[in-house]
């Protein structure tokens, strides 16, 4: 009986998210009086796998099988199910990201498990098993009980602190024995976005709306983004009109993000936009309209012209960086 956490890797490396997941799993295991097993699929060096021990992972099941690179939803879900069975795990944790959302629902069917997605923070209780998540697209919280013996959770990024808790970690090679016929997803082409901070990883996000007046006016925001190592985002009308790529759209129907700091320039703050950014720790709003709803959600604000404010921000950032 253990807690199993699926720790995905990015070209052989773990990220803060992986350690957040491990810390979260370790907190649950402690309350249940059990241990944490991580499942890693792909080529990750032993030293990197061992780093999970720093966050309370007792054992790592290491799957090295190139066939999984196609991220075939069925094959990966079946492989995770095999690991859960071999460990007798009662709680299974994945990230609430593209991979976690793809595998977790399939996994619950295999495991006769109950599922809660987008869990935030530590469980309310483990007996009965009750967790919290945001519902109505960030507008409210719900407490949900999972009633099955095996529980599957996807965990929302940036909602649990990384906690150091060094334990001894054993690494075991694991072969989930998935037949070739299960892999039917054929990858024809992969496009990686390089040289840019991923929105989902960014601690700081710089975002622009209609108030930026046109795509030619983004240079100042990009300069701020470069200075801060920030991710770039935008509102829906800006992506719909093609001023910015659709990957940058944050909001109810775009990406939902939770950075430490979110800058909103020329964004009025429609409820659908706020839904995508309200989990940010701090929100800064600059808008010429003092009645703009964004100021109800912002921590710091300026009523004024974005084009006057941006150069001053850049100057201020340069000063504190030097």
């Amino acid at each position: 009986m253990s807690v199993l956490v699926y720790t995905e890797n990015w070209e052989g490396k773990f990220k803060k998210l992986s350690y957040e997941l491990a810390s979260f799993a370790s907190a649950i295991a402690k309350e249940m009086g059990s241990t944490v097993t991580a499942l890693s699929i792909g080529h990750v060096a032993d030293d990197e796998l061992k780093s999970l021990g720093k966050y309370g992972v007792n054992k790592v099941l290491n799957v090295q099988d190139n066939r999984f690179e196609s991220l075939d939803n069925k094959a990966v879900a079946d492989a995770i199910a095999k690991a859960v069975a071999s460990e007798g795990a009662k709680v299974v944790i994945l990230a609430h990201n593209n991979e976690g959302k793809a595998f977790a629902p399939r996994l619950t069917v295999k495991l006769n498990a109950g599922l809660v997605t987008g869990v935030i923070g530590a469980p309310v209780s483990v007996e009965p098993f009750v967790v919290k998540k945001k519902v109505f697209t960030q507008k409210a919280f719900a407490k949900i009980q999972i009633k099955t013996d095996v529980k599957v959770l996807t965990f929302a990024q940036n909602s649990f602190d990384v906690v150091e808790n060094q334990v001894d970690t054993v690494i075991e090679a694991f072969d989930p024995q998935i037949g070739d016929d299960e892999f039917t997803t054929k990858v024809n082409e992969t496009n990686k976005i390089t040289g840019k901070i991923l929105l989902s990883d960014a601690e700081i996000v710089v975002s622009g709306g209609r108030g930026m007046k046109g795509p030619e006016n983004w240079a100042g925001l990009e300069e701020m983004g470069d200075l801060l190592g920030a991710g770039m985002a935008c509102s829906r009308p800006v992506s719909d009109d093609g001023w910015r790529p659709k990957e940058e759209h944050v909001g109810q129907t775009g990406k939902i993000i939770a950075p430490n700091l979110y800058f909103a320039f020329g964004i009025s703050g429609a409820i659908q936009h706020v839904a995508g950014v309200s989990s940010s720790k701090f929100i800064v709003a600059v808008n010429k309209d003092p009645e703009a709803p964004i100021f109800e959600f912002a921590d710091y604000g300026i009523v004024g012209d974005v084009f006057k404010v941006i150069p001053q921000f850049i100057e201020g950032i340069k000063e504190i960086k030097s």
Partner: peptide, 27 residues
């Protein structure tokens, strides 16, 4: 397999701290 036990609204946010347009560096 799951049951919604109850809901909560997020806590009200503290008022937004405003800074003057000509003094944006202060923010």
């Amino acid at each position: 397999r799951t049951e919604f036990l109850g809901y909560e609204m997020p806590e009200a946010k503290a008022a937004c701290k405003m800074v003057d347009e000509d003094n944006a560096k202060e923010l």
